[in-house]
Simulated scan of single mutants.
Amino acid sequence: MIAQTPKPPYYAVIFTSVRSELDDEDYEAMATRMVELASQQPGFLGVESAREDVGITVSYWDSLEAIKRWKAHVEHREAQRLGLERWYSTFKTRISRVERDYGI
């Protein structure tokens, strides 16, 4: 599903990852929980995600402060730790300001 974002400007956090060889059943539950929890945070605007060989999750936020609060959230920090230790062989996070958007 495509996120319904407001008129720009707003921010996008782009999380790109490659899963480790470890098949961990806890991963899907944690991923679902993170979307649920993020959607409850002040400043959250939406999320889009796709996974094949490379996973890409883009979350949208109204401010850099909201992104900083989400990064520091206690449950999100635990997910970050587990990602480093178990779930990802590599990942990259990019934060961008959206100046324009358009579509149908």
Rank of each mutant, 00 (worst) to 15 (best):
L45A: 11
Y60K: 05
D26T: 14
I2P: 00
H76D: 01
Q80L: 12
A12H: 05
S39L: 08
R100Y: 14
F91M: 10
Q41C: 09
P42R: 05
S89M: 14
V47P: 00
Q40Y: 09
Y10N: 01
Y102H: 06
R97I: 06
T57H: 06
A79V: 01
A50H: 11
V54G: 02
W70A: 03
Q80H: 07
S20Y: 06
A72Y: 07
L22I: 14
H76C: 05
T90D: 10
F44T: 00
P8E: 01
F44W: 09
W61G: 01
V54L: 13
Q41N: 08
L37R: 15
S20A: 09
S63I: 02
V47I: 12
T16Q: 15
R86C: 03
E65P: 00
A31R: 09
L22T: 13
M1Q: 06
V74A: 13
G43I: 01
G83Y: 13
R33H: 15
E75P: 00
E65R: 11
E78W: 12
E21V: 05
L64P: 00
V54M: 14
E85Y: 08
L82T: 01
E25N: 12
Y60L: 08
S17N: 07
V58Q: 01
E48Q: 08
I95A: 08
V58W: 09
P9H: 13
H73G: 02
W61E: 02
E25D: 08
M30K: 10
I2S: 10
S39E: 12
R81T: 02
A38V: 07
I56L: 15
R51A: 11
A38E: 03
L82P: 00
S96V: 13
D62W: 05
I67H: 04
Q4K: 12
H73E: 12
R94G: 07
S89E: 13
I56P: 00
E21C: 03
I14G: 01
G46N: 04
G103K: 05
S59I: 01
F91W: 14
V35M: 15
Y10K: 03
S17A: 13
R77M: 11
